[in-house]
Simulated assay, not measured.
Amino acid sequence: MGWKTLDDLDLQGKVVLLRVDVNVPMEDGIVTDATRIEKIVPTIEDVLEKGGKPVLLAHFGRPKGKVVPEMSLEHILPALEKALPGRHVLFADDSIGEAASHVIKGARPDSVVLLENTRFHAGEEKNDPELAKAFAALGDIYVNDAFSAAHRAHASTEGIARLLPSAAGRLMEAELRALDAALGKPERPVVAVVGGAKVSTKLDLLGNLVTKVDHLVIGGGMANTFLVAQGIEVGKSLAERDMADTARAIIEKAKAAGCTIHLPVDVVVAREFRAGAANETVAADACPADAMILDAGPQTVAALAKVFAEAKTLIWNGPLGAFEIEPFDAATNAAAKQAADLTREGKLVSVAGGGDTVAALNKAGAAQDFTYISTAGGAFLEWMEGKDLPGVIALNN
Results as ranks from 00 to 15, higher is better:
D242K: 13
R241P: 00
K212M: 10
I232M: 14
M222G: 01
G221F: 12
T225E: 06
E233M: 05
N224R: 08
G231N: 06
H215V: 12
L209Q: 10
V213G: 03
L206G: 02
G219Q: 03
A239D: 01
G221K: 10
A229Y: 01
N208R: 09
R241L: 04
Q230W: 00
L238K: 11
G219T: 02
T201C: 13
A197S: 15
P189Y: 13
G235S: 10
D204W: 10
A229Q: 02
K236R: 15
V210P: 10
R241S: 04
G231M: 06
D214M: 10
K198N: 14
K236P: 05
K212T: 13
T201Q: 14
R241W: 01
V194A: 08
S200M: 13
I218F: 00
D242F: 05
E240M: 09
G207V: 02
A223V: 02
G220M: 09
V199C: 10
N224S: 08
L203F: 14
K236W: 07
E240A: 07
G195S: 12
K236Y: 06
D214F: 06
D204N: 14
H215L: 01
T201H: 12
G220I: 07
A223M: 04
I232K: 14
P189E: 10
G221I: 08
G196T: 13
G235I: 01
A229D: 01
K202L: 14
